[in-house]
Write a protein that binds this DNA or RNA. Structure first.
Lengths: 208, 208, 208, 208
DNA sequence: GATGAATGAGCGTTCATTCAT
DNA sequence: TATGAATGAACGCTCATTCAT
């Protein structure tokens, strides 16, 4: 792309493919942003095409359907998210450190892929029961199991308070973190890290 | 309705009006449920009509538009919600007690009007910038100010930890609570009160 | 209506019928005005009801349909219009005088029943071919025949110019007159009579 | 269209664009005809689509709304109409000749674009007050001013009778001419020119 | 007579998607 | 790949009309 092509030769296959990948990635980014801000049902294929500078029909050269775009957005988010959480668990830190890592990684994702996070948070409920999106619930469950194992270990080892309902605590913590995608804006006074630390302080020690 | 009508006399105007109010209320309940579960954009007027056993056109005798239904649902929720929070603040309890009350009342609303809560949570972002729904942001702000005053008072009086960012803490707490509408099911093992107590324990004392 | 009714007795049948006739007449007047200004297709039964201070359903106690209202408006206009023209022809004036009378009566109708004139002018074309409105074309034809007889007699007797196409002249004159309902406003500087005289001057002597 | 394409080559972009323009033009022609015969309010988008052999939704690839079609029809008619009248005034003929030209051009338009004329005549009253159609009244006014200037000049120079009210005479003449679109059928015994001459004779010299 | 809720057909319009070019 | 025209289903909504009260 930055290398001059001499003699007006037609673009190489390499370049074409790069363009194609770019176009596809750009379409996904636009779709994710619109799905995140207007909702999936509230976003039209024309919206995506307009914002991408192409015509609606052209989108179907890259994706088989609007639903397909949602599918790719969710897979591209959930797969590395799960892998990241798995990797943390595999590292075998003590529960307090493991939980801190899970939380910090979550906040990192909110900065890294805010639109995907927002789409996941807003739409995953609506997708329950749709065969093509079963994997969303599967990932959610496997992620939940990782967190629950860490929390349980912490309670067993006595580092977390014994009187808390682990499952309920997890749900409160999970929603607290992911919901912050709706109000956290990078570039403001709060860095992603400081939000994570703020949350850790609150979650570990409470208000009192 | 519970009083027997002697002699088979036709229902009085009272009864007719009750029917009308009932129908309207039933339509609102159906709409709220569908908006909550499928999203506002994902719900069609036909969906509401079908589930209510009438024809789509008949809805327009009771509401001027689909948007009007959303409007009524949100107003009917936000107005008493705000009033309830205001009343708590007016009672002048110490900050810890006041916050406990705010939290317990919030969880009570989730049981009382889960669909309205879910609609408020899911749709209020999309409504920003729509003149007809400015009041939603207004109420949200006024509610936020009540919570922030209580939290600030608690920090000033030394009962809440001084190192927390009040605004950020509020946002975490708020989202934690309202998001539970997505997973809490009354009638299960957890009563509404026990969820509130669980949350209070977590929020006040933390995991450690 | 102005006579006090003693003892709270219910209104007599006479009064009731008068009310009924009034209501019907008022509905017709409102309908005619709306049909004239918005067109028949562009006027809703609700428009008529709103402007009459009743509910749409109540109109059907007085008229069997919206079309029925149009029917009554046109009949109430066309029948006396035709009778008036017939009477003029029957008077046996010389053609110039007869034509003057036809023209003056036409302008009188525009003041007397401007809405009916406008409805007749705007809608009669659309009604061609509708069995229920055949009488409109019938009246139009019979009226045309009266005018043509007068014009032909005038040409035969030498008072009207021999080189004019009688039929075409009639159509020009007819449309000129009836169209003035769209711009003539009684109460302004021009009286109905002066418009008629202006037209007579133009039609009889021309611009030159 | 008249040039043979050798070798069965597929149509070039030129042809595609021509198709597009054709389709749009054909839709406009159909819409104008239906608006003229059934009225704008009395014509459905489905009517236009049916008569054009396409589906209702396809119309929206060419026009943004039904109202847009009316807008294009009126603009495409009024703009050249006004330009034609302007050009006549610019030629600086004596008033009698100028008026003759205005009248002859008007009748030519009735043959050239009868549907647009009929739509203009029937609907322009209903459009008053609609911001998007202000230009219709603007054009009408500017056209009226041209005619009034010619008539006034004729009266000043003594060629037109001094006792006529110029404005009223204009309105009678205008409506006479445009209304003929409702009855004049080209291809019959009367040519467009002969109708114009008939009208000129009547308007200039009168019946007597 | 009037009401108000309901009907069922149809309105203008939008949508995701297809496909010849 | 991109285009632009088309599709067919569905959308939110309006309409004339009905009818029990």
């Amino acid at each position: 792309m930055t290398v001059a092509r001499a003699g007006g030769r037609p673009p190489k296959k390499e370049a074409v493919r790069a363009d194609g990948i770019d176009r596809r990635a750009r379409l996904l980014a636009v779709a994710a942003e619109l799905f995140a801000t207007q909702g999936y049902a509230g976003t039209t294929v024309r919206d995506i095409a307009d914002k991408s500078g192409i015509l609606p029909g052209s989108i179907y050269h890259h994706f088989s359907s609007k639903e397909d775009m949602l599918d790719v957005i969710l897979r591209d988010f959930l797969s590395p998210l799960y892998e990241g959480f798995s990797e943390i668990e595999r590292q075998g830190d003590d529960p307090r450190e493991a939980l801190s890592k899970l939380i910090r990684v979550s906040f990192a994702w909110i900065v890294e892929a805010p639109h995907a996070v927002a789409v996941y948070q807003s739409e995953s409920d609506n997708l329950i029961g749709q065969e093509a999106f079963e994997y969303v619930a599967d990932y959610s469950l496997k992620i939940e199991q990782i967190w629950l194992r860490v929390l349980t270990a912490g309670q067993t080892s006595g580092v977390f308070r014994p009187d808390l309902d682990i499952k309920v605590s997890y749900l409160f913590i999970r929603d607290s973190i992911w919901s912050s995608v709706r109000w956290y804006r990078p570039g403001g006074q709060l860095t992603s890290e400081s939000v994570a630390e703020e949350f850790l302080a609150l979650a570990f020690h409470g208000l009192l």
